[in-house]
Design a protein around this nucleic acid. Structure first.
Length: 262
DNA sequence: ATGTCATCGCGTCGATGA
């Protein structure tokens, strides 16, 4: 089966591209980010018409995540749990679905990690705190020893080779040592970076800015990641990036990344 | 590192976020 992640940068603006891609790629589960829609306004009809169950966690204007699945949802959880010291988290960036595959649970998360720029503001501390909360949550889930996939837009460039020109990213929240360190800490809990472990092609990117001809110059970054628990990694067959969608009319600035498991 | 894009607010553009 096929599990995909795609930051669509607005469901209203990207609906037709999403439908075209669903027909073409036929993922069994798709994790979407930046739906930029409240749940009530999310256009469900055509997606459900293609045979998908759909769960959204949206908010007005920005952020928002969704899960599409041909399998029925056994369970859905919205939002990353807060810590005692946190204020209320109103940003919709996390949704978890539980499915049954071969009589075993498969947990899939669609996450949209905060961008964190500019770094001299509370946006950066919010990003780092969000990552710490994600690590705490992941520790608990990994203790279940189930197949778990954390998919989404992490807004983290893990390694210098994950961007066209590391010098231009120095100091950016996506490439700051603190962000990269927390991403490593998350991985080191026992996750496999599915793309990195199945594809060593250089310049494998998942995002190209709309500005300055970034796509035409292949000035991209790899920030969309699929992290697999050991039980999920045992099922991993391969990973691909649907780069061609960046050339479509009215493209998202991100492209889908998907894993084949079985 | 800015040659863009999506959304909101009630205003046909400016602010915001990425």
């Amino acid at each position: 089966m096929k599990i995909a992640t795609w930051n669509i940068n607005g469901i209203k603006a990207r609906h037709d591209n999403l439908i075209a891609w669903l027909k073409e790629a036929q993922p069994d589960i798709a994790c979407l980010q930046e739906i930029k829609s409240v749940d009530e306004n999310f256009p469900r009809d055509e997606i459900e018409g293609l045979g998908y169950n759909l769960e959204t966690h949206g908010q007005k204007g920005f952020n928002g995540v969704a899960l599409l699945s041909k399998l029925p949802f056994d369970e859905v959880n919205r939002g990353l749990p807060l810590r005692d010291c946190d204020n209320e988290d109103e940003q919709a960036r996390f949704i978890e679905g539980v499915f049954t595959v071969g009589e075993k649970p498969l947990r899939v998360v669609s996450l949209y990690l905060p961008n964190g720029n500019p770094v001299d503001t509370e946006k950066f501390t919010y990003k780092l705190q969000w990552m710490e909360r994600l690590i705490d949550w992941a520790k608990e889930r990994l203790a279940l020893e189930e197949a778990l996939i954390l998919a989404g837009d992490y807004n983290v460039i893990p390694m210098p080779e994950d961007c066209h020109d590391p010098k231009t990213w120095e100091g950016d929240a996506l490439f700051r040592p603190e962000s990269r360190s927390l991403f490593r800490q998350l991985c080191n809990l026992g996750f496999t970076d599915a793309l990195r472990n199945t594809n060593d092609a250089p310049q494998t990117y998942t995002f190209w800015d709309y500005q300055a001809g970034a796509w035409q110059r292949n000035n991209g970054i790899r920030i969309d990641h699929l992290l697999f628990s050991a039980e999920a990694a045992d099922m991993l067959k391969g990973v691909n990036v649907d780069k061609h969608t960046r050339d479509w009319e009215k493209p998202s600035d991100h492209v889908p990344v998907w894993a084949e498991i079985g």
